Amino acid sequence: MSTTTDTEVRADLRGLVDRVCADFPDAYWRELDDQLAYPEKFVDALTSTGVLGALVPEEFGGLGLEVGDASVIVEQINRNGGNAAAVHAQLYTMSSVLRHGSDEQRKRYLPKIASGELRLQAFGITEPIAGTDTTKIRTFARRDGDSYILNGQKIWTSRLQHSELMLVLARTTPLEQVARKSHGLSLFLLDLREIEGITVRPIRTMVNHETNEVFYDDVRVPASALVGEEGQGFRYVLDSMNPERILVAAECIGDGRWFVERSSRYATERVVFDRPIGQNQGVQFPIARAHIHVEAADLMRWRAAELFDAGKECGAEANMAKLLAADASWEAANAALQTHGGFGMASEYDIERKFREARLFQIAPISTNLILAHIGQHVLNMPRSF
């Protein structure tokens, strides 16, 4: 099913992703999950189509499409039972470079990011102590002639082992020396092929998702790695968060529709006590309610995308889209597991794998509590909660 917001381009994108995903069925993702392996073949196949350069302007070799178009790509991956988390950062992480990078950075890196020759999938922001309070990060970049010396520690840096480039947020002015705590943070584009001093420690999680703890020990990076102006990195990071929220919401919509379709089919085919279990309202109604909530969340996804693509403020809408879609997909996941009963716990049905993946979106890339705090303070004008 496609939505009424689909254009010809979006319909073509859906068809293209469907064709790629047809070569990577449930068994492929199931085996990767067993091995905790990265979907290298899938990523290569998708990269070869050029769609991961969707948001890179045509002048730099990309497709020059809009966020709404790109959201269809990740939605359809998850709609087919895959996991777009392996590739979604390649779509939006480069936006900081596109919007705030130097001409030299854009010319040097964007064409290769668009083609997939270089992968920019890693973003080092979160730290063990600071957590979601980004302004309290301790990683520090000290200017030393034509270089910066980077020292610190990051956590939850995803896809680093499968990236040639990485963005890192670091303090360049001590917190006690800035007028506002969001000042004095700078963004750096690191070419991982050219630097030394980074130690990567993989973190095993309940889902098959490559993420890492990263240590920076006297990492010397050229001053040309600085994105935009020194001290303005926090603002640049915020700029990239709205498209991230919108794309992740689309992934949740894809998951939600996958769960609803699997549940509906199973409830229709599974016969117990001489009748399809879907004939029982206790089974049918939770699936129907989940479907309603997924479709309603999808409307907010498209509202946020339309605002962003029109160049309008969309922070509230992007956050609401992410929260609604994450909640809807999680509701659909629970309905699917309950519908399948014991078989929902069996790996061969793939429900338990997708169930674990859907749970992640309640806490990442932004927790539901932080979204509620944002809406409470910035939309409803209530006192700041934290």
Score class of each variant (00 low, 15 high):
residue 208 N to T: 13
residue 216 Y to Q: 02
residue 189 L to V: 01
residue 188 F to A: 01
residue 192 L to H: 05
residue 192 L to C: 08
residue 215 F to S: 10
residue 233 G to M: 05
residue 228 G to N: 11
residue 222 P to N: 00
residue 227 V to L: 11
residue 204 R to Q: 07
residue 196 E to K: 12
residue 216 Y to R: 02
residue 232 Q to S: 15
residue 223 A to K: 14
residue 189 L to D: 01
residue 226 L to I: 08
residue 220 R to K: 11
residue 198 I to K: 02
residue 232 Q to H: 15
residue 204 R to Y: 11
residue 234 F to Q: 09
residue 231 G to N: 02
residue 208 N to E: 07
residue 217 D to N: 14
residue 224 S to N: 07
residue 200 V to C: 05
residue 218 D to K: 15
residue 204 R to F: 10
residue 192 L to T: 07
residue 201 R to F: 10
residue 213 E to I: 09
residue 194 E to Q: 10
residue 214 V to L: 09
residue 226 L to V: 07
residue 235 R to G: 13
residue 221 V to W: 07
residue 205 T to S: 15
residue 204 R to M: 04
residue 209 H to Q: 09
residue 224 S to D: 06
residue 205 T to Y: 15
residue 202 P to G: 01
residue 235 R to F: 14
residue 194 E to L: 08
residue 222 P to F: 00
residue 228 G to C: 13
residue 231 G to S: 05
residue 225 A to T: 13
residue 220 R to G: 02
residue 210 E to C: 09
residue 195 I to W: 04
residue 203 I to F: 10
residue 223 A to N: 12
residue 201 R to T: 10
residue 192 L to G: 06
residue 213 E to M: 10
residue 199 T to P: 03
residue 220 R to A: 04
residue 225 A to Q: 08
residue 219 V to M: 08
residue 192 L to Y: 04
residue 192 L to M: 10
residue 191 D to S: 03
residue 225 A to E: 10
residue 218 D to Y: 15
residue 232 Q to M: 13
residue 233 G to F: 10
residue 202 P to D: 00
residue 220 R to E: 00
residue 221 V to L: 11
residue 194 E to W: 02
residue 206 M to L: 14
residue 215 F to I: 13
residue 231 G to M: 05
residue 198 I to Q: 05
residue 207 V to K: 03
residue 203 I to G: 05
residue 232 Q to C: 14
residue 197 G to I: 06
residue 234 F to E: 08
residue 202 P to L: 00
residue 225 A to I: 06
residue 195 I to Q: 01
residue 217 D to S: 13
residue 197 G to E: 00
residue 211 T to H: 01
residue 221 V to R: 06
residue 205 T to F: 15
residue 200 V to Y: 11
residue 208 N to W: 03
residue 224 S to M: 05
residue 231 G to I: 07
residue 193 R to M: 00
residue 208 N to H: 04
residue 217 D to H: 15
residue 229 E to N: 12
residue 194 E to K: 11
residue 231 G to H: 06
residue 203 I to W: 07
residue 226 L to N: 01
residue 227 V to T: 07
residue 229 E to M: 13
residue 201 R to I: 13
residue 226 L to H: 04
residue 205 T to E: 13
residue 229 E to Y: 15
residue 209 H to T: 12
residue 214 V to S: 02
residue 192 L to Q: 03
residue 193 R to P: 04
residue 209 H to C: 08
residue 230 E to R: 15
residue 202 P to S: 01
residue 225 A to F: 12
residue 215 F to K: 09
residue 202 P to A: 00
residue 207 V to S: 04
residue 193 R to Q: 00
residue 219 V to P: 06
residue 209 H to A: 09
residue 212 N to D: 05
residue 226 L to K: 01
residue 223 A to I: 14
residue 193 R to K: 12
residue 214 V to T: 10
residue 224 S to C: 07
residue 202 P to V: 00
residue 188 F to G: 01
residue 215 F to T: 12
residue 212 N to F: 11
residue 234 F to H: 14
residue 232 Q to R: 13
residue 195 I to S: 01
residue 207 V to N: 01
residue 200 V to L: 08
residue 208 N to V: 07
residue 212 N to G: 06
residue 213 E to N: 11
residue 189 L to S: 01
residue 223 A to L: 14
residue 217 D to T: 15
residue 206 M to W: 09
residue 212 N to P: 08
residue 218 D to C: 14
residue 231 G to D: 02
residue 193 R to L: 00
residue 215 F to E: 12
residue 211 T to N: 03
residue 218 D to H: 15
residue 207 V to C: 04
residue 207 V to W: 04
residue 219 V to D: 04
residue 211 T to S: 03
residue 222 P to S: 00
residue 234 F to Y: 15
residue 190 L to F: 11
